Amino acid sequence: MKKLPNVTGVAIDGRGVLIAGPSGSGKSSLALELIDRGARLIGDDGVVVSPEDGRLHAAPPVETEGLIEIRNVGIVEMEPVGAPACLWITLAKDPPRLPLGPEQRRVAGCTVPEIRLYPSKLALALRVEAALDMFGLDR
C-alpha cells in the first residue's frame, strides 16, 4: 500500500480517476464538479493505492476518509468508495493542445494512462469524462 499525497480521486461509474497537481491547482474543485455530475469520492488530497491482480486500486486514506474540502466553505463529509484506477489526470499549465494519446504513469508497479489538462474552469469536468471514455482503462 502506498499513500499518494496531493492526489484527489473520484470514481465515475466504478472507474477511478486520480487527479494530481500542486496545492491550489483545483483538484478538489474538479472532484466536486465531477461528484455533482454523479461521480463518487475516493479521497481528497490523498489517496491510498495498491496493486491488485495487476491493476492499481485506489482507496481513501483512513485519516481523511469521507472528507473533502470546499474552499472558503469548509470540510464536508461524503461516503467514500474504492475503485480500480483507470485514468490519471495531471493539472498542468503546459499540456499539449492535441495529444496523440495518453502518456503512461507508473505507480506501485502498475501502469495507468495519463492525460495532462490545463486547469481552466471551462468544461473541465466534461474534458475529464471524455478523456476517461477515450483513454481510460476498463473496470
Rank of each mutant, 00 (worst) to 15 (best):
A85L: 02
E69M: 04
V47G: 01
D53T: 02
L67F: 15
G54H: 03
G46V: 03
H57K: 10
V73C: 07
D45T: 04
I42H: 13
I42L: 06
G46Y: 02
P51K: 02
I68F: 04
A83H: 10
M78Q: 14
V49T: 05
I68Y: 08
G66V: 04
I70S: 08
P61M: 12
P61R: 11
V73K: 11
P61F: 04
V47S: 11
R71H: 14
V48T: 07
I68S: 02
N72W: 15
D53H: 13
V81N: 07
P60I: 03
D53V: 00
G82I: 09
D53S: 14
T64I: 02
V49G: 00
G46M: 00
L56H: 09
G46F: 03
L67Q: 03
A85V: 00
V62G: 00
G43Q: 11
A83K: 12
E63S: 12
L67N: 01
L56V: 01
E69Y: 11
I42E: 10
D45Q: 00
M78K: 14
A85C: 13
R71K: 14
P84W: 10
V49Q: 02
G46H: 05
E52Y: 03
V73I: 15
G43T: 05
D44M: 02
I42S: 07
G43D: 01
A83M: 05
E77P: 01
A83W: 13
V47A: 05
D44I: 05
V76H: 14
G66I: 08
V73A: 11
E79R: 15
S50A: 15
A59I: 00
V48C: 10
N72H: 15
R55L: 05
D44C: 10
P51A: 03
S50D: 12
G46K: 00
E65Q: 15
A85S: 05
E77D: 04
V48H: 02
I68V: 14
A59S: 14
G74R: 12
E79H: 12
P61G: 01
G66T: 12
V81R: 09
V49R: 01
A83P: 11
E52N: 03
